[in-house]
Design a protein around this nucleic acid. Structure first.
Lengths: 194, 194
DNA sequence: GGGATTCTTGACAGATCGTTCAATAACTGC
DNA sequence: GCAGTTATTGAACGATCTGTCAAGAATCCC
C-alpha cells in the first residue's frame, strides 16, 4: 500500500459531470476541470485517465442520476400513468431549475458527437433504450389495466412520452415556463387516458 | 470596381451551414470550412468575417430553411390541424433522412452555447418564438373552427406541438424509426381533435 | 492598355489545448 | 524508522486552432 487519495472520487465525478453539462465536451478544457474539482492535472489523469474517459464517467453518472426518477414500476401500486406523470414532472423540474447547468447532457452528447465516437454513441443509445423500456413497461401496464383510451397503442404512447422527455429540456432552454410545460404534460396524459 | 468574387455566396453559406450542422461549432475548424467550401481562409474572412459571424449566417440560413415548411397559414384553406401534421411530417422527414447531417442546428446551438453567447442566444430565441407564433396561430384557428376536443386549450396544444418539433430530431438521432414517430404524431393530433 | 481595386494564395504569429515527464511529498507495511 | 509505493505539484512539449500579414493574380473603369 501507499499514499491514499486525498479526494472523494464520486464527488469529483459529480463536479466533472456538472462542468461538462454546463459547457459541453469541446468547450470544457482540462483547466476548467481543475478549477471545478480543485485537483491538479496529473491527479485527474492518474485517477480517471484522459478527458475522453472522464466524459464517459460523466455520462454514466448522469444516467444514474436520471434513473433515480424512474423507480422500478410495480403493478398493483401507483397507477402507471401517474408514474409517467411523476417522471415527466421530474424532467420539468430538472430542466427549469434556476441552477440547471444546461439542457440534457445526453442530448448534448448526442448532438455534439453524433455517431462519430463509438463509446459516447453506445452510452447514449443505452440510455435511450433504458428509458424507452421503462416507459414502455408502464404503457403496457396501463393498457392491461384498461387505462388507455380506445385506439391508443402502448408503443405509440411510449414514443410520445419519450418525445416529451427529450423535448422538454429544449423547450425549457428556449424560455417556455415550467407551468406551461406541466399543463401540456397533463393534457397529453388526460387525452390518452380512457 | 475590381475583381469580382469567384463563388456564390449563398452556395458557400449552404456548405458552411451543413458543416456546422454535422460537427457543431467548436468541432468545426476553419480548415474544415475551407475543404467544405473549396475556398481559402482569407476568402472566407474577407467575405463573411470571422468564424462567429459565419456561424450566425448559418443559423439564419437554417432558420430560413425551416420556415419553408411553415407556409403562412390562411383561414378557409386547409385544416389548421393538417397544417400542423404537414409541418411535423417535414420535421420527421428531415430528422430521419439518411443524409441528415445531425439533429437540429438550433438545438445544437442551444445546447452548445446555452446563453453564454448573446448573439447565438438571440437567434435561437427568435427561432423558437417564430415557430411558437406559427403553431399558436394554427392552434387558435383550430379552436375557432371548433376542431379541438373539449377542454383542450390552444396554448397547451402549442406547447405540445413544439415539444414534438424539438424532440423528434433527438429521438430520430437515438434510433427511433420514422414510421413510429409518424404514428405518435398522428395519435397526438387525433387525441386533441374533437 | 494602364491604373486602381479587390480577390486569392500561402505562410505565419499568438494563444490554447491535451498529454506527458521529472521531481517532490505523503502514506503504508514491516 | 526505513523502504517501497503512490499521489501530487509544476513545468514543458507537440499539436492544433483562430486570426492576420504580405505578395501575387485577376478584373473593371477610363
Amino acid at each position: 500500500m501507499a499514499r491514499p487519495r486525498q479526494f472523494d472520487e464520486d464527488l469529483v465525478i459529480d463536479q466533472v459531470t456538472r462542468t461538462f453539462w454546463e459547457r459541453g465536451y469541446a468547450n470544457t478544457s482540462i483547466a476548467d476541470l481543475e478549477t471545478a474539482t480543485g485537483l491538479g492535472r496529473q491527479s485527474l489523469y492518474c485517477a480517471f485517465g484522459d478527458k475522453h474517459a472522464l466524459f464517459l464517467r460523466a455520462l454514466e453518472r448522469y444516467a444514474a442520476f436520471g434513473d433515480q426518477h424512474m423507480p422500478p414500476a410495480a403493478l398493483n401500486s401507483t397507477s402507471p400513468l401517474e408514474h409517467l406523470r411523476y417522471m415527466l414532472r421530474a424532467t420539468i423540474d430538472t430542466a427549469t431549475s434556476p441552477d440547471a447547468p444546461g439542457a440534457c447532457l445526453m442530448v448534448q452528447a448526442m448532438t455534439e458527437f453524433g455517431d462519430t465516437d463509438v463509446d459516447v454513441h453506445a452510452k447514449c443509445q443505452a440510455n435511450s433504450r433504458r428509458i424507452e423500456a421503462w416507459i414502455g413497461r408502464l404503457a403496457a401496464e396501463a393498457e392491461a389495466l384498461g387505462m388507455l383510451a380506445p385506439g391508443v397503442a402502448p408503443a405509440t404512447v411510449t414514443t410520445l412520452v419519450m418525445t416529451q422527455h427529450f423535448g422538454i429540456p429544449i423547450l425549457a432552454r428556449s424560455g417556455v415556463p415550467a407551468d406551461q410545460l406541466q399543463s401540456s404534460v397533463d393534457l397529453l396524459l388526460k387525452q390518452i387516458a380512457s
